[in-house]
């Protein structure tokens, strides 16, 4: 669609600009201010330059949290995206089953994040939770609050449980936009299921999939609440991801300077990834229009 150039449109955007500026720019400026000072209380503060940045960049705990975060985010994507596509392909195309599956699939998305944590906290316990009980019955020694590996797997399964539905719903929306005629033509040509998937279904899902991957990347990269409730970042630091680490410094120890420096680095990482994805999505969109 050709748009008219009209700078008066800024007036329509102003309310959004102001409300987001208040909640984004002012805090961001404050974070920058904190990051270059050693603050004891509002009256007693010293300019320390880039000391906090050097300290945070050289902090082993940060490196570990970052590596853990990247491994976790990659695992989340590698499991949820294929699983989401697979489930979307099994969904019925019409009938009462559509609404029913939609509602059931969307249910985990609407559960407050800490309740998701609580659900799995209970479900995974060997003494009172069905999941933990069954796994221990099978002869596997499973305890997510003691064994780092178990904790890590539990957090991962919880995330798959929580968010795969998002990918499913996105893919399903993409699949629905394929006209029936395509499938009939494929049938006449005697195309295999794989060929139908590869050449009809996957291309249609591509644009929504990119957005799904972007959303899952971002949200898993800033995951905080669920592991906080489930494991509190432990045992040890097995499930301490970036946000968890940041909140520990900022609120737990109230180290304003390092927390602010860390925030900025975190923000820069997000900004870069976000920009790359956005550019890719927008260019893909432009190519589609042509």
């Amino acid at each position: 669609m050709n748009k008219i150039t009209n700078n008066k449109a800024w007036f329509l955007v102003l309310p959004v600009f102001f409300i987001v500026a208040i909640s984004a720019i002012i805090p961001l400026m404050t974070v920058v201010n904190y990051s270059v000072q050693d603050i004891f209380d509002p009256q007693t503060r010293f300019f320390v330059g880039t000391e906090w940045f050097e300290q945070v960049l050289g902090d082993r705990r940060l490196h570990d949290a970052l590596i853990r975060q990247i491994v976790y985010t990659m695992s989340v994507l590698l499991i949820e995206v294929p699983l989401g596509i697979a489930v979307a392909l099994t969904l019925p195309r019409k009938g009462w089953g559509v609404s029913a599956s939609m509602v059931l699939l969307a249910l985990p998305l609407l559960i407050p994040w800490n309740v998701v944590g609580t659900i799995w906290q209970i479900f995974g316990r060997a003494d009172i939770g069905l999941g933990g009980y069954v796994i221990n019955m099978l002869g596997i020694d499973y305890n997510y609050s003691q064994n780092p590996m178990d904790a890590w797997v539990t957090v991962l399964v919880m995330d798959v449980w929580h968010w795969t539905s998002l990918i499913v719903l996105l893919c399903y929306a993409g699949l629905r936009s394929i006209p029936d005629a395509y499938y009939q033509a494929a049938k006449i040509d005697g195309a295999s299921n794989w060929a139908v998937f590869r050449f009809i279904q996957l291309p249609k899902m591509q644009s929504v999939l990119v957005i799904g991957v972007l959303l899952r990347f971002m949200d898993s990269f800033m995951i905080y609440t669920e592991p906080f409730v489930l494991t509190g970042g432990g045992p040890g630091t097995a499930t301490t991801f970036l946000s968890q680490f940041l909140v520990t410094i900022a609120v737990g120890q109230f180290d304003l300077g390092p927390a602010a420096a860390f925030s900025l680095i975190y923000f820069l990482i997000i900004l870069l990834v976000c920009w790359v994805f956005y550019t890719v999505v927008m260019n893909a969109g432009k190519r589609e229009e042509q």
């Binding site: 700078n7 002012i26 400026m29 404050t30 920058v32 201010n33 904190y34 270059v36 000072q37 603050i39 509002p42 503060r45 300019f47």
Partner: peptide, 29 residues
Amino acid sequence: MSWMAWTPITAVFFSCIILMLIGMGIWQT
């Protein structure tokens, strides 16, 4: 504003960014 803990250096830094954005806006028009 005191809670924002301004320092001269960060103030100059943000002024530059804002001036740059305004400048780009004018240049664009």
